[in-house]
């Protein structure tokens, strides 16, 4: 019972994550300027990958693998939190120049 519940939950999370990825990609394609695209990008990074990671972590038979997957997500959060502002900063510099 609990096993199948976890599988369903994981499927739901992975599905949601994939949907976020698809929407985000569409947004990067369609949105007009750098800042909007950046907004979409960070959503993919944080939300999309987070959902995917959680879903996949639930599917792992060994709990330590789940922890590893979630760690990957946390690391990516750190890097996207840094790169996002940097890209925005650069964009502002280029506009004012």
């Amino acid at each position: 019972m609990t096993a199948s519940f976890f599988i369903w939950l994981a499927a739901l999370l992975i599905g949601l994550g994939t949907a976020v990825f698809a929407l985000g990609t569409l947004a990067i394609w369609r949105l007009p300027d750098c800042y909007c695209r950046l907004h979409a990008l960070t959503k993919i990074d944080n939300l999309g990958l987070g959902l995917l990671a959680l879903g996949l972590a639930l599917l792992q038979p060994d709990w330590i693998d789940g922890v590893k997957i979630v760690t990957i997500w946390l690391l990516l959060l750190c890097s996207s939190a840094t790169t996002g502002p940097l890209i925005a900063q650069r964009a502002i510099e280029e506009q004012t120049r």
Binding site: L75, C78, S79, A81, T82, P85, L86, Q89
Partner: peptide, 17 residues
């Protein structure tokens, strides 16, 4: 060079890792 606090923080996390 990026001396912003953000990159500094990232470096502090990344380097040991």
């Amino acid at each position: 060079a990026h001396d912003s606090p953000l990159t500094g923080m990232l470096t502090r996390i990344l380097l040991p890792l």
